[in-house]
Simulated scan of single mutants.
Amino acid sequence: MDGIRQKMAQLRTEADESASQVEELKLKVKHLEQENLSKEQEITSLQHRNQTLEAEVEKLEGGIKDHKEIASKSAQADNQAESLTRKVQLLEEEAEESDKNLRELNEKLRQTDVKSGHFERKVQALEQERDQWEAKFEEMSKKYNDTKKELNDFLAEIGTI
């Protein structure tokens, strides 16, 4: 009987220990279930966040594509602006060259006008001198003819004498 009592006491102790282990294990299971639930909630939250981030990535990739297109257009516009700037610069240089040539031509025209006026005066002076020489020639021609007539008359008179 003592042996049975000991055995019973031992079984009670083991039962108490088992009960306390069950309680501990129940607490551990409860704690692990809570952890599992919190991990599942975290997974759900992270999946939602991942979906949100993927949507944002797609949106940003679309924005990057748009910005690349804008940058390409901007580069084209810059190239076109640079080309137009060079054209403007060339046209300005040509305009300056044309202005310089125009000034030179105006100066030459002025000098030609001055020379033309000088030569016109010279022509007028020469025409006046020619007219004087013609008048003198006519006068001398008339005197010559008169003198010739007088000489012929004189010779005719002498010839009759």
Rank of each mutant, 00 (worst) to 15 (best):
D2P: 01
G3Q: 11
G3I: 04
I4L: 14
Q6P: 00
K7W: 05
M8C: 03
L11F: 10
T13V: 11
E14W: 03
A15Y: 05
A15G: 03
A15H: 05
E17P: 01
S18G: 08
S18I: 13
A19V: 12
S20Q: 15
S20D: 10
Q21R: 15
V22G: 06
V22C: 11
V22Q: 15
E23H: 13
E23F: 12
E24F: 08
L25P: 00
L25K: 14
L27K: 10
L27F: 02
V29Q: 13
V29W: 07
K30Q: 14
K30W: 06
K30D: 13
K30S: 13
L32C: 02
Q34I: 09
E35T: 05
N36W: 11
N36D: 09
L37E: 10
L37Q: 12
L37A: 13
K39V: 08
E40K: 13
I43W: 06
I43R: 12
L46F: 01
Q47R: 12
R49S: 04
R49D: 03
N50L: 13
Q51T: 01
L53T: 02
E54Q: 08
A55M: 02
E56S: 05
V57A: 07
L60F: 05
L60I: 07
E61Y: 01
G62N: 12
G62R: 09
G63M: 14
I64D: 02
I64H: 06
K65G: 04
K68N: 07
K68Y: 01
A71V: 14
A71C: 09
A71W: 04
A71T: 11
S72K: 13
S74R: 05
A75Q: 11
A75D: 13
A77L: 15
N79Q: 06
Q80E: 14
Q80L: 11
A81V: 07
S83K: 08
L84A: 12
R86C: 02
K87I: 04
V88M: 15
Q89W: 02
Q89P: 00
L90S: 12
L91G: 04
E93I: 06
E94M: 10
E96G: 12
E96W: 10
E97I: 05
S98Y: 11
S98Q: 13
L102D: 05
L102Y: 11
R103M: 09
R103P: 01
E104P: 01
L105Y: 05
N106I: 08
E107T: 05
K108C: 03
L109G: 02
L109M: 11
L109H: 04
R110G: 10
T112A: 15
G117A: 13
H118T: 07
H118C: 04
F119R: 11
F119M: 11
E120M: 13
E120W: 03
V123C: 08
Q124V: 03
L126N: 02
L126I: 06
L126E: 04
E127I: 03
Q128I: 07
Q128E: 15
R130G: 04
Q132R: 14
Q132E: 08
W133N: 14
F137K: 14
F137G: 03
M140V: 12
K143C: 01
Y144M: 10
Y144K: 05
Y144S: 04
Y144F: 08
N145I: 01
D146W: 02
D146F: 03
K148E: 06
N152L: 05
D153S: 03
D153G: 01
F154S: 03
F154N: 02
T160H: 10
T160M: 06
I161G: 02
